[in-house]
Simulated scan of single mutants.
Amino acid sequence: MTKPVSYKRHRFPPQIIAHAVWLYFRFPLNLRLVEEMLLERGIVVSYETLRRWVMKFGSSYARRLRRKAPSPRDIWHLDEVVITIAGQQHWLWRAVDQDGYGLDEIVQTRRDTKAAQRLLKRLLKKQGCPPRRMITDKLGSYAAARRQIMPRIEHRSHKGLNNRAENSHLPLRRRERAMQGFRSPGGLQRFVGVFSAVRNLFIPTRSRRSALAIHLHRLNAMAEWKSAACIAA
């Protein structure tokens, strides 16, 4: 069982810490903008303190958030996007399911078969079962990795079929601009782990797009966020 979040030796109430971390990961804001928003509410906290909160509590909250139950009926959409860090190209490999739910992401310096294999191995370990189908773009590394890791799984390779995975990069691109880039591969990996967990929680599925359904989804998501942060609803 995941341990409860501890706020010992923090002078700010847990509700303020959790709210600040939520603002940072939920919206395209940098730390200085979060600092300004809190100041408008009469909460004086430096962006450096906010940075420490984000680093300390973000991953803890993400581990406590409920994850989607894996299913052999799922369809995995895989894609990779280049992100430049300190002048060097890195590749963020990502997998989403048929509903756009983020399954996993991994930062790597390679864009080859070994990198694709690593993503597939992580997915199988995390999901616990293979998908019904795997959809990618035309990058040959996916086909080579699939033949070695899960050869019986159907693989469709077509640029037009993989829009769901390609579109999943757009929210991160917006954050990258707001934050003026990432400073290290490890920092990017930590950020996307929390960012994807929060996005999975708050973004409704395609089948729940009515105004009432979206409203109820957001209320439930906020209740689950407060539960993950161990604060009173």
Rank of each mutant, 00 (worst) to 15 (best):
L120H: 03
V81G: 11
D99K: 07
N200A: 05
V34P: 02
Y47Q: 08
I203R: 12
I153G: 07
L172D: 02
G102A: 10
N162F: 00
R177C: 11
L216Y: 04
T2Q: 09
A228E: 08
A197S: 14
P131A: 09
V5N: 00
W225K: 03
V198N: 05
S71Y: 00
S210V: 01
G193N: 14
A229Q: 07
R146E: 09
R32T: 06
Q189N: 06
G87D: 09
K121Q: 12
R110W: 05
R73T: 14
M222L: 12
R183L: 12
R183Q: 14
E166D: 01
H10M: 15
R190S: 14
H10A: 15
A223T: 15
M134W: 08
G186W: 08
N163E: 12
T136C: 00
A221Q: 02
A62Y: 00
V198T: 08
H215I: 04
L65D: 10
K126Q: 12
W93C: 04
S210L: 03
V107Y: 03
W53N: 06
L170D: 06
Q98H: 09
P14D: 12
Q180S: 03
A18N: 10
L78H: 04
R147F: 01
Q189M: 07
D97F: 02
L38T: 03
I149Y: 07
A144T: 01
Q127Y: 02
R209C: 05
R147S: 09
K68N: 10
Q148A: 14
